[in-house]
Amino acid sequence: MKSVDAMGLSCPEPVIMAKRALKDSPDGIEIKVDNVASRENVSRYLEAMGLKVSVEERRGEWRITGRR
């Protein structure tokens, strides 16, 4: 599974990073973000692409995992 670091970035960049990563790794990706809008937008993107999404929070950062 491909891991992407989108910490410190604001929308729509993290969604584009998720999109690119998903092209290379179609079965699933993991992406780290540090703001609510990025967490929500990346989750929406992965769900709209048909992936199962889980979000794990640790100290102001979120690790979003999307799997087929």
Binding site: S10, C11, P12, V15, V36, A37, E40, N41, R44, Y45
Partner: peptide, 12 residues
Amino acid sequence: LAKFGFLPEGAY
């Protein structure tokens, strides 16, 4: 576009 997560931060 909203469905695919292209929402501005202000929407949240």
